[in-house]
Structures are given as structure tokens and as C-alpha cells.
Amino acid sequence: MTFKMKLLVGTGALLSFAGGVALASGPAARTAAPEVKKHQVPVSKDGDIVLGLCDGETTMEVDGVKDGQKMTREQAQRVSGALMAEWLKKNPDANWDPVPLPAVAQAATPPPPKNPEAPRSPPGVPRTPEKPTAGGSVVQGGVRPESGGKDVKKQAGAPIQDGHTYGAFSERDEAIWAASTQAFVEEGNRVFHDGDLLGSTVAMSCDMCHPDASNTHPETYPKYQVQLGRVALLRDMINWCIENPVRGKPMADDDPRMRAMEAYIYAKRKGTALEYGKK
């Protein structure tokens, strides 16, 4: 493998429109929009695959894997590891979140692969730790699964405001909310770990660089994304990663996969304070 560094220049604003993330609505505004950089990876002399890292400058040629060929998951994991190591070398002071402990523990005992021969599929996705993600603040007192005539009489004397929508929620409702939310997050977990679902042509998936959605810092968006030359939302960066390291097609903003991944990434950062614009 050989590493090549290259400073990139802006190549026009076309990319952002193709990706469905227009900066402004009017055509006049479009022409005036700042140029958006595209990470132009150099072409390999041997016709090997060249991959770009999300800093927009680190690239790497994968020896022996021709452009258009698919890597196995193991090859891809090696490449992404090497790319990250290179980036860390270049940015010794970078504030790269360490992989959270639970993820390490999960990685140590991966579940058995469901489909070990499919090169781009995950070996089985570790479950997202179970957290109540919705409705945890409701206290007792409404109509409950157990409540019929008898319970109702007991509740009638309780000093709780009632007779309106939010007065009528029960533990059953909360459990349904929590399970529904969890199912949504779980869906994102699956996509996040599955190169096929991401449409990767190079067997890359998000978890390779972002185990447990670490270092996805969803709480910092919107922020000025240097590599894009404009202000980005989380979904813009997800799409950037899909297009670049993952080498897939960017998704529509409301693609169910995109929505699920956003859900997963936010869920993994539960409790983190919002800090839009943070570097």
C-alpha cells in the first residue's frame, strides 16, 4: 500500500446539488454560492482502488484491488484502519474521541456471523444498549392497562390534572413508545453496520471508522464543515461519508436509511448537550 497526500482544490458547486443538498433556493443564489470542494482522489497508476478519508486530503491506494472490484470486509477494515492511523499521525493533537468502552467490550465478543460469505455484510450487528428513549418522564395516574371501573375510582381522587391528552397516557403507552423508538434506532444500527444497505461498492460501512457511532458528534451540527466549504447538517456529513470512504450513492434526505441512521447516531449520544457550531 502506498499513501499519497494531496492538497485539494475546489472543483465547483455541482456536487452539492447532485447530492440533493442545495444551499439556496433561487437560481441566482446558486450561481453566487461559494464553491464546494470535492475530495478528488488521485488515480492509481495500476488501476487500483483509491480511497479518500473524510479530512478531504488523506488518500490511500489499495494494492491488488482494481477499481470496480469489491473488497472483502476484512480488506476494507484493514484499509480503514490504516487510513485512520495515517490521519492520526498527521493530526497528533486532534480531538478524536476514544472508542467508548462498551463498544470495545462488544467488539471483543462479536456475535457469530449470520452470513459469513457475503463480503460486505456485517458479521451480525451488536445490539444498541437498551435505553428508554421516549416518555420516561410520565408519572403514574392515567388510564392503565389494568384500569377499568375499579382503578378509575381510585384515581378520581388523585390530585393530578386530568381529562386531557397527556393525562391519559399509561405505562403501556410508554412501553410502546420506547419500543417503537428503540426499533427505529435498531434499524439505524443495522444500516450503519451494513455496507450493502449503505450501497457501498468497496465494502465499507460506517462502523469501521465510527464504532458505536463514536466521533460522529451529531450534537455539533449545524456547523461550518471545512471539507464541504459550507454549513452542514449531520445528514450532509453522513452523505459525504457514504459518497467518499464508503463509495456509495448519496441518499435522499428523507431516505428511510438516512432517517434511521440519524436516529441511531443521536441515540448513541444521549445525554450529550447540544452544541451547534462546535469545531
Partner: peptide, 19 residues
């Protein structure tokens, strides 16, 4: 939706508010 959401449900139910 197979066992996917079913598993955490019970745990969630109890973990929610600490009744």
C-alpha cells in the same frame, strides 16, 4: 419486526420510571 423490539420491551417497561 421479529425479536428485534420485543426483547428490550420488558426491560424498558421496568426501567422507565422506577416505580
Amino acid at each position: 419486526l421479529s425479536s428485534g423490539a420485543a426483547l428490550p420491551l420488558v426491560a424498558l417497561l421496568y426501567a422507565l420510571t422506577g416505580y
